[in-house]
Amino acid sequence: MLIKILVFITGFLISVVAWSAADPWTESYRLEALTQYDSAAKSIATVIKDNPKNEFAILRHGWLNYLRGAHNESIRDYQKALDLNSNSLDARLGLMLPLIAQQRWREVASHANKVLKVAPWNYYAHVRLMISEEGEKKWDTLANHAKKVSQRYPSDATVLVYLARANDWLKNDKSARGAYEKVLERIPGHIEATQYLSR
């Protein structure tokens, strides 16, 4: 009887270990945590190979490709996810990341505006739209935009940084200073705000 129990437990343990080693999801999260994005992406690629329409696997592959600097592959993945599910805000928000890396500001703005059509105060879409406005040096637009978003997310420091930068470029020193002071209240020691205020 004891032998039978030992054989059963051993068999169970072997199967658990074998299953976990083969599970590409677990493996991809583990490798991502180790910043081994290339291997993590390869792990998820096996899932996509088995099921080319696995939307989440494609999204995750896009994210891992973005992390490993394969921006064009990342764009293709997110676009594929968007083709599978055109309502996906995740895919559109994700797609903006490699586009930002490639400084394709108009494309970023185009996707951000599409998100904002259905989710008018989506935080990530607004921040990524602000990044594109900064990239295109649309300082008036950025200042007005950041001010409106800051009213919706008053505790957020990132939006205040964009508000401060736009006002700095526009030479509205008082407004820039006020925004950077608020940044320091939210993130004491914030490098950019500290440098500006110590001028």
């Binding site: 600097g69 394969a70 921006h71 064009n72 490639q102």
Partner: peptide
């Protein structure tokens, strides 16, 4: 074109 191999357009 934005090839990943070079840091620019």
């Amino acid at each position: 074109f934005n090839p990943d191999q070079i840091p620019g357009r």
